[in-house]
Amino acid sequence: MDIKQVQTSNDISELARLGADIWQQHYVTIISHEQIAYMLDKFQSVQAITEQIEKQGYEYYFLIANGEKIGYIGAKQEEGKLFLSKCYIEKSHRGKGYASQAFAFLETLCQKRGLTKMWLTVNRHNKDSIAVYEKKGFQKVRTQIADIGNGYVMDDFIMEKELVDH
């Protein structure tokens, strides 16, 4: 698998399209179609991603297998930690080791930057993703309910992973 940083406006448009496809596949059993549409617009639209990259310090990376963009990760460095904001892989490509490769990439990134911890938020009802994160060494540290507007909330676990020097 190759990992390529999202840099151009064309990349951002592709990322928004890929995100919409994956979110429709994955979240439909967890949250309503209306909330998916709202969250895509608020967090994964071309405008939102551009703002995150240009003004908020986020980095996005495509996950590429056999020349095809099969998923992406989004992260932000903050206070000696890496916040893993997004880690999504298309349904047909899950279970093939791509998440493990993405996490190895992120751990190497953290090592190079001297970061000691990774953390993320995950919907408390997203059992498959929670299982993957736990398998990768993340632990639940607390719960968080965040009002994201329009009558919607994100009901999440916050999970962390301590990074050890290799």
Rank of each mutant, 00 (worst) to 15 (best):
S129K: 03
T121D: 03
I89V: 15
A16D: 11
S92E: 12
I89M: 07
S32P: 05
S13G: 10
Q144M: 07
Q35R: 02
D21F: 09
T143G: 11
N66K: 15
F138D: 01
G80W: 13
R94P: 04
I53H: 03
I70Y: 00
R124S: 02
S92T: 06
N10W: 13
Q24I: 10
D41F: 03
S9N: 14
V6C: 14
L109C: 00
D11L: 11
A131C: 04
I12G: 14
E51F: 09
L18P: 02
I130K: 01
A99R: 00
I130N: 00
A104N: 13
S85L: 03
Y58D: 04
M39H: 00
H26A: 11
I70C: 05
Q44Y: 15
G74W: 09
H33E: 13
I64E: 07
Q25A: 02
G67W: 04
H125K: 08
E59Y: 10
A104Q: 15
L15E: 05
S85M: 06
V28N: 09
K86L: 05
T121R: 04
I49K: 10
N10P: 03
A16G: 10
Q56M: 11
T108G: 15
T29I: 04
A131G: 11
S13T: 11
I89A: 03
G97Q: 03
Q101H: 14
T8F: 13
K42P: 10
K117A: 08
F138I: 01
E34H: 11
C110F: 10
I12D: 12
R113K: 15
Y38H: 09
E107M: 10
T121I: 00
E34Q: 14
D128Y: 01
R142H: 10
L120H: 07
I89K: 03
K140N: 01
